[in-house]
Computed example of a mutant assay.
Amino acid sequence: MTLPRGLGFGAAGIASLYTEVTDEQAHDAVSAAWRRGIRYYDTAPHYGLGLSERRLGAALREHPRGEYTVSTKVGRRLEPGADAGDDLANGFAVPATHRRVWDFTADGVRRTLDGSLERLGLDRVDIVYLHDPDDHAESAFRDGYPALEKLRSEGVVGAIGVGMNQAEMLTRFVRDTDVDVVLCAGRWTLLDQSARTALLPTAVERGVCVVVGGAFNSGLLADPRPGATYNYVEAPAVLLDKAVRMEEAARRHGITLRAAALAFCMAHPAVSSVLVGARSADEVDDCADQFATPVPAAFWLELRETGLLVTEEP
């Protein structure tokens, strides 16, 4: 499988993650990503109850289909008829027009993908991930994965994989199945290197691509301040202190902590792409600028000497 190497666009933000994003803002964000050379775009039905897929598909229709890679996810099937109100309980400032149903069955996988293709306006996608099967391991391995394998053999999808916020089950998928790619969110960052123990070396051994999400651990590494979030909840004091010390070191070396966080994610040979979530063209430009910023070797040396980083990478 060929996956565009470097920075990728995570499309949860354009689905009004936490606060409203307009159609125009979403379109401008995707357009900015294209302008900055980003050619990998990741979405899911979960993001804004399908809004992410609709907005991403509309924006990408302006570009040649053969020039970009798009991934979506299965495992949360959307069913109409939810209660009136909004979807903020699930993180999205959108009307609760649908409800999510966990479904890793073969039929559920196909129905979910069919819905995604319709919203995206595509006849096929490049990558399909099983989405967060943490509490559904048995069904994901027994039903969901074989269903994806069949879709790949039929040419409906180009590559298959799993996306999760943990490394352990992803390692099992890499070892025990024929996945092409895994999306590991938040477990290979400046603050959490748990993917390094088994997932990353196993992926190298098996020739499986790794996409890293959550490079900023949901906010703390982007802007370490009191009240910043880590893994979508308020950051513990010990991690806030660590991030602040990293930010101070970055300033001493003339860079931002954001630049260091993105560079770290790309430092392992298993990693093909780093996804960044952006809600606006300005955020896309900032991420692209930070990603392109060289990080001095002296910065990494200082982190190791002060005990803020214990890995050999970068």
Rank of each mutant, 00 (worst) to 15 (best):
D241T: 14
T229F: 03
F92L: 08
V284L: 08
T229V: 10
F264D: 08
V271P: 02
I127V: 15
C209Y: 10
T97K: 10
L190N: 08
V181A: 07
F9M: 14
H253T: 07
A106W: 02
V233A: 11
A228F: 04
R77K: 12
D192S: 07
G48N: 06
D87V: 05
G6I: 12
F264Y: 15
V179W: 03
Y18A: 10
E118I: 14
P146L: 06
G66C: 09
A270E: 06
T72I: 00
M266T: 07
S139F: 00
E67C: 09
N231L: 11
A89F: 09
K73Q: 00
D176W: 08
T19S: 14
P224M: 09
P146G: 05
S116L: 01
A33M: 12
Y129A: 01
L3H: 10
E62M: 10
V21R: 09
D87C: 11
A243G: 13
D143F: 05
T97F: 05
A250E: 04
P236D: 07
L122S: 02
M246Q: 13
G227Y: 12
E247Q: 14
L183Q: 04
R304M: 07
A228I: 04
T177A: 12
R258D: 06
S31G: 15
A32E: 06
A249T: 13
M164G: 05
P226V: 09
T256C: 10
K73F: 00
